[in-house]
Amino acid sequence: MLNNIKWLFRSGDNSRGCGEDREIVVSSRMRVARNIDGVPFEPKMKVQDAHYLINLIRSVVETRFKGHYLDLQKITHLEKESLLECHLVSPAFIRGDKPAGVFITDKGTVSIMINEEDHLRIQGLTCGLDLPYVSSEVFHIEETIGEDVQYAFHETYGFLTSCPTNIGTGLRASVLLHLPGLVFTNEVEKVLTGAVQIGMAVRGIYGEGSEIKGSLFQISNQHTLGVKEEEMIETMTKLTHMIIDVEKKARDVMLTKARNEFEDKIFRSLAVLKSARVINTDEVLNLLSAVRLGAGAGILKDITLDVVNEILLVSRPANIQLYFGEVLEERERDIKRAEYIRKRLGGDGQ
């Protein structure tokens, strides 16, 4: 049913362009959690409640917005994994056993999960740094739905969620950062500890933060009560700007102190991607980290960040299978992945 899923592979809203500082900020994301008053929350929800909620929300959402609805019980395991790899759903969502589904807007930038841990999880993303834009997209949908259904809301605690850690705004904002400079200068831990001190959570995006995993780090807010949505977004944005500044300085240090070594690493990485015949996701992540750095610093003139982002996304295990439209074993995937990357980068022996 998802034969033509290439629309899923767009990371962010291409028609609008990306946010700022793309060479450091891979993406900005935000989600809000909402529950419907009078309908039992997840632990007490029966199958008929789940169906009722899906029908109610679909009827509202599908009359108000243009997009696709995917019934989680009708799509394959591979398609679920692909939605996860595209950051359109959460891990808990695809592993749940209740009737559930996700509505994805035509632009592919906002998704509405129905029957996640909360009745609704509305989430948006864009490339680069632009949380205010993501927030406006998400809250436009949140407000529109809120005109048709009554959200569970409490005088003191704000929006009620299934888990006490989301209560209040129900808002989780995050930025995915590429920090090879700070990894090189050994400052990454210090900088990220500072983020934790002001109440943010930090994690390596594909495993705990190490250079081998592509120098990618995700920062998100931890608290949802006692702080206004706009303030949270401002704090996250300010913090991100601060990290961008130190990362830029670190990159300068890196490229001044060891220019030849880094150019060597960048060009070698690109050469491997252009000619490999068998390649796994970890190696892609590692090599792309260097290529991303080279593209951002203007060392690799022919490589755009769009291409880097696309390869990062399409190379993931489920996406590569959907890209070729066939179920592939691990070994076959590594071969097909190499083939796709060579083609994408105009490498040899396509």
Binding site: H154, G158, I167, G168, L171, H223, L225, G226, V227, E229
Partner: peptide
């Protein structure tokens, strides 16, 4: 949450 009141 280190807070007891929603202000959003």
């Amino acid at each position: 949450q280190q807070s007891d009141k929603h202000i959003g």
